[in-house]
Design a protein around this nucleic acid. Structure first.
Length: 651
RNA sequence: GCCACUGUGGCUUAGGGGUAUAGCGUCGCCUUGGUAAGGCGAAGGUCGGGGGUUCAAUUCCCCCCAGUGGCUCCA
């Protein structure tokens, strides 16, 4: 029998008889409880059953590693499919990939509800206890096609992904077999820490013209702790939910009579919104923007000119017939800003021309997508369009990236990164048909980003229909990525609107590039993220209630009134509670509104014209002279400090 | 738009074929209290809307509407 040498990394090289499996080697080197779910053989992921017949390197893939979790979840998807087809023999499994935190599997079957989900979960647990081996089987193409002849989805996958002459593999556990490349965990007992979470519909190949499928989601971890930790994270995120906090703090309301996706900013939310806007106005004036206001509706011709009709018609509110034509609510400001640019002859001396607008657009987002402030049909934003030459694009993009960084630092955001969103050369029907321009502008943007030296990722198929863009991607408390800000390069507007300027040579020059940018997303979405990020405990400058005054007894009413007046005179948002409730009760009541500071006023404070400051965490700072407190909080507000520093933290 | 689930006073919620809980909040009275619930009392709901089954529907069925989680979409 020939021998082979297996390099097992830090543990050196071992000699084995040829024909040994990867799993046997791992068992030999790392023992039974190594937590390995698969093996990396010469850098390729393999099953434990993989036979070694020549010298190689081998290391275990642990269930808790990224690769290991991926395998675990993929295997768990198979287990799900096994349970589903047993309970619903007519269900046709389609695809079932691992995803962040878990997996899903799409089935062609009748819709199911929670009860069925529980039954499926129960069945999966039975199979886990039975500990079926997950066995890899290799077949030629013909055999595979016969095996899955009753599942047109699997046949379609074979048509697309596997050459007709090469064959592929399937994995069997118990009576269930599924087409799959693998690798998988050696047996179903590894899949113990899973939970089915939800069902949904998905379309075959994500195409809504094709079959509607039932998608079942689950999460799966290598350990009980992993699963528990994820459940904790979900609970934690629920506490940060902007819908819950927004209701508690009375930031916004949504009323059926007004319409869904159309939030009303209540006084407290309006304060947040207007503070954001005030900050944006100050910042963007400094960056050389000029503000305009345009109407909320315009004639059909405008949106035809811009190309939004028909490209974007589905996302606009339906047309209104008027005596002089058809009108649409604006879903974007750009066409009107282009007309502002065209309002007079422009000189190269005016470029870059930066036109900003703080207003609202309306988009007919699909009803099923609307949630709280995160996805709405009324979008308020600090929108702007920059008109410049190709040479100026780089500097404008750089300034915008810097602006985004400035903004986010002030708001306390750290979990974000840039994404270069590109067109998809395979799906050109989604985009304006100028392949050369796409390639050129994409390369230009990429070069600009590389030149600035900021890290970024690239995403194919995420471009706007008129040009590539730089998106600022934000990670939520649930670990999900959402688009926040956007900087878009538009090479099409100049032709559609005949944008031009008189250049240095006195020539009429039509090479006007437009940059669309909205660094703070929409105010709705931004406030949702802000609320989640701060759990409603906003920096002082943003807090709807900056100071909550609480009297010990009604004897301090007069002093409380003086404190209020002094704070109001300094422009501080202050509320006074001089009711006859006890101090403990007042504190408990007002915590809901999350004031930046509470001021406790009793006999001592009134006598010495001081205040006792109570921070959100309960820390105290007693006997602070009123004038000093006002000076300090004024500075904290004016500097837009993100940390509250008027009460030293007790450590 | 599609699928599943949910919808009870301002908020959180119990219940379930015989028109309904409780807590918080609100209001009144007592209390004048030093840091996350002082006491007593009162008001407040056609149980999301419409239809059906039934002697009787908030409860069961159907249709809408809205919300939640996903899909799709997302300039």
């Amino acid at each position: 029998m020939s021998m082979i040498t297996v390099d097992v990394g830090a543990d050196g090289a071992h000699e084995y008889a040829s024909g040994i499996t990867a799993g046997e080697v791992i068992l030999n080197v790392h023992g039974k409880r190594s937590g390995a779910v698969a093996a990396l053989v010469d850098g390729v992921e393999r099953d434990f059953s993989h036979v070694l017949d020549s010298n190689c390197s081998l290391e275990p893939i642990h269930g808790e590693s990224g690769e290991g979790l991926y395998i675990l979840r993929h295997s768990c998807a198979h287990l799900l499919a096994q349970a589903v087809v047993e309970i619903f023999p007519d269900a046709k499994p389609t695809i079932g990939p691992p995803i962040d935190h878990g997996f899903y599997y799409d089935f062609h079957m009748n819709p199911i509800g929670d009860e069925e989900l529980q039954a499926i979960e129960k069945k999966m647990n039975q199979h886990i206890r039975a500990n079926h081996a997950m066995i890899r089987e290799e077949y030629d193409n013909q055999t595979l096609r016969e095996m899955f002849s009753d599942n047109k989805f699997k046949l379609e996958i074979m048509d697309d992904k596997i050459g007709h002459d090469v064959g592929s593999s399937a994995y069997r556990q118990g009576d269930f077999v599924d087409l799959c490349r693998g690798p998988h965990v050696p047996s179903t007992s590894h899949l113990r820490w899973f939970k089915l979470t939800s069902t949904s519909t998905a379309y075959w190949r994500a195409d809504n013209n094709r079959e509607s499928l039932v998608r079942i989601y689950g999460m799966c971890y290598a350990t009980k702790e992993g699963l528990k930790e994820r459940q904790r994270q979900i609970e934690e995120a629920a506490k940060r939910d902007h819908k819950k906090i927004g209701k508690e703090m009375e930031l916004y309301m949504i009323d059926e009579m007004i319409g869904k996706g159309l939030p009303v900013w209540l006084p407290n939310g309006e304060i947040l919104k207007s503070e954001i806007e005030r900050y944006a106005v100050e910042t963007e004036e400094a960056y050389g923007y000029q503000r305009v206001t345009t109407p909320v509706l315009a004639k059909q011709q405008l949106f035809e000119c811009s190309g939004h009709l028909p490209h974007y018609a589905g996302s606009m509110y339906p047309p209104m017939e008027m005596d002089d034509g058809t009108y649409y609510l604006k879903a974007m400001n750009c066409p009107m800003h282009h007309l502002v640019f065209n309002n007079k002859k422009r000189s190269y001396r005016e470029l870059p021309l930066r036109i900003a607008e703080y207003g609202t657009v309306y988009r007919n987002e699909l009803s099923g997508t609307l949630t709280g402030l995160l996805r709405v049909r009324m979008l308020s934003m600090n929108d702007a369009h920059i008109y410049c030459t190709l040479d100026q694009v780089a500097e404008e993009v750089r300034a915008n990236v810097q602006m985004v960084n400035d903004y986010y630092r002030t708001f306390g955001f750290e979990n974000f990164h840039l994404r270069l969103s590109l067109w998809d050369s395979e799906k050109t029907e989604k985009y304006i048909d100028q392949a050369e321009n796409w390639k050129a502008t994409q390369n230009h943007l990429r070069a600009i980003l590389e030149n600035i030296g900021v890290p970024f990722v690239e995403a194919v198929g995420e471009a706007a229909f008129y040009g590539p863009k730089i998106d600022v991607q934000f990670t939520t408390a649930l670990g999900r990525e959402e688009s926040m800000a956007t900087i878009q390069l538009d090479f099409a507007a100049k032709d559609r609107f005949g944008l031009s300027y008189k250049d240095e040579n006195g020539e009429e020059n039509g090479e006007v590039f437009v940059i669309h940018r909205a660094p703070l997303s929409t105010h709705e979405r931004f406030v949702a993220f802000l609320t989640e990020h701060w759990i409603g405990n906003f920096p002082t400058w943003l807090s709807p209630v900056q100071v909550q005054v609480i009297t010990i007894s009604e004897k301090q009413r007069e002093y409380a009134g003086e404190v209020r007046q002094a704070l109001e005179a300094a422009g501080v948002r202050v509320q006074v509670d001089d009711s006859d409730a006890t101090i403990g009760k007042k504190i408990r009541m007002h915590r809901k509104m999350r004031p930046a500071y509470m001021l406790i006023l009793g006999e001592e404070e009134a006598a010495g014209r001081t205040v006792s400051i109570r921070a959100r965490n309960g820390d105290q700072c007693n006997g602070v002279p009123l004038d000093q407190f006002i000076a300090d909080i004024f500075a904290e507000i004016t500097n837009r400090e993100s940390a509250l520093s008027l009460v030293p933290t007790s450590e």
